[in-house]
Amino acid sequence: MNTDFINICLADDDEDDRLFFTDAFDELKMNTKVSTFNDGVELMNYLNNEDSVLPSVLFLDLNMPKKNGVECLLEIKKNEKLNGIAIAIYSTSSSEEHIEETFINGANIYIKKPNDFEELKKILSEVVTINWQYHTSGLNKDNFLMRM
């Protein structure tokens, strides 16, 4: 496939959120290719498929049917082939428990879904352009939650 694209995946059961997400990238006019999945099972099927192109950033909603975000996170981090993918948690919740749990299990950043479309665009563009290697080495609980 075309390696000029930045491959981005989103697993979110909410149709509106998926729409905001794809629209935001459309409007950002970055060199991205966005794939969305309706739940954790769909996402894992895709990732486990040998033909699939692995994303450079995976946005993971936490509250999903069938397989939730944390379960996906655990599975990905256990899988040697997949554990290099940068994972951004993308959730409505900003509760300490969720933040702590996903941080411990190896997520790279925690994004609280913003309530303003412009803000969403800003966040997404920033996340996509993060130098993950640099970010991950300096990661701690305080900068794990993304603040704008």
Binding site: D14, D16, D17, F20, T92, S93, S95, K113, P114, N115, D116, F117, E118, E119, L120
Partner: peptide, 20 residues
């Protein structure tokens, strides 16, 4: 309160798109 945030956030997001 947590679940109420979800639809509210969407209202606000849609609203922000409408306005912009």
């Amino acid at each position: 309160s947590h679940d109420l945030q979800e639809p509210l956030r969407k209202i606000e997001t849609f609203l922000s798109r409408l306005i912009s």
